[in-house]
Design a protein around this nucleic acid. Structure first.
Lengths: 224, 224
DNA sequence: AATTATTTTTAGACTTGTCTAAATATTTAT
DNA sequence: ATAAATATTTAGACAAGTCTAAAAATAATT
């Protein structure tokens, strides 16, 4: 519906992405301070940029009332997210990066401008549905599956499930997962749950491990 | 020998690369106008930037005397070239781009900042020695094989050779090669040479084709 | 060698994105 | 409901990179 492809700077794209991610998490309109915090910049800079994005009809904006992406803005945001996640898949699956190493690199790669590159890359990777952190990859038209956020901690004894993502994607958490050999797609069976501290014994690759509640609360799973 | 990794902007990198490519072609010190022409900018802008690069000890510069890369500058240039060519290999070999489509994309990808990415990518691609245009890929330490520029036009009847590059990398020439099924690594046997116009009959994939002198002058080959 | 012509540099202005400090709105608390 | 605290916006300055127009240096011509 857009008459001409407007070209955004890397900075503009980063603002759009930040607004999108806050908007998705909170549902509400996004405050200037939140954006500043996310982008590690100052509120005054954000104010300036929001005006610019508003002029380009990428956000709705009334002074002092916070901001929200227009449908055009949202569509751009989703495209950036799509690029980011597809690149992450490539880095982890093909170049042997680990979960915790890829974010900064993907942050750069997502800004590569090309109409065809990301689609070719997606095909090369066999149309992955989730990135290495378990977040869903939007399709070519911007449709994105919102997964229902089932945590491992809510699973019952005897159930089987597949790991599809992590909630906490801090470097230390991801390293812990690497060490315990839990990764995307891992099949887990809940053997028992300790009432005292809610820790779980799970079976993974035919071996049993104990998982603290702290951990199970941060693992998204799909029940089988 | 450099005490700390200095970070260059994309623009600075482009200047370094431009100076390098002109310096390699001509051998002489590079004039402001030549750089301006290459980068499609104005001489005044070039003047400013050269001063900046000179402050950073990446070029030698005396007013009105042209400029030359220092060894530090040259090493940076070669690293960029390395990135550019490795990305081109990936785009053509793995994502099915054609020779003539990849330049602009590689121009973006070469600026991705990462100490590990390009080495991992190189390994993933099995350490290619040449890019899809036949230009040699510098190794991790910046060593670059200067190939001896043997043209197909200098081959004799009965000789066998492999295509390792093109001199003219215009889009129309690359398309012509695609159409005639000549690509990097193609094995060619010279069947005959027509004295009148120096056109050649060559054998490629068990089929014979006529190649004008204009074409054979622009194909780098390695004799077998 | 003196005069053109060309190349290169400087000076000043503009754009994008940033910042600090001050002014204005809004929200919270009393 | 008024004062205090917080959030947001404006104003003005700065850095990177670009440009035009004018000045200075080099090269070419006669």
């Amino acid at each position: 519906m857009h008459l001409m492809e407007l070209k955004l700077s890397q900075t503009e794209e980063n603002y759009i992405k930040a607004i999108y991610s806050i908007e998705v998490h909170t549902g509400k309109s996004v405050s200037t301070n939140k954006i500043a915090e996310k982008l590690k910049t100052k509120a005054s800079s954000v104010s300036d940029m929001i005006k610019k994005l508003s002029d380009k009809k990428l956000v709705y904006y009334k002074k002092y009332q916070g901001t929200k992406l227009t449908s055009e803005g949202k569509s751009i945001a989703v495209k950036i997210v799509r690029k980011h996640r597809i690149w992450e898949v490539f880095l982890v699956n093909n170049l042997d990066y680990t979960w915790d190493e890829v974010h900064d690199l993907a942050e750069q790669l997502e800004h590569i401008k090309s109409n065809t590159l990301i689609n070719k890359l997606e095909a090369y990777l066999n149309f992955p549905t989730h990135d290495p952190h378990g977040d869903p990859i939007p399709d070519k038209d911007g449709n994105i599956e919102h997964h229902k956020n089932i945590m491992l901690s809510s699973a019952k004894v005897g159930e089987n499930c597949t790991v599809i993502g992590v909630k906490d994607s801090s470097s230390s958490f991801l390293k812990f997962l690497d060490n315990t050999k839990i990764k995307l797609g891992s099949q887990l069976k809940i053997i028992s749950i300790e009432e005292f501290d809610n820790s779980m014994i799970i079976e993974n690759n035919n071996s049993q491990k104990s998982i603290s509640h702290q951990i199970s609360k941060n693992l998204f799973v799909k029940k089988l």
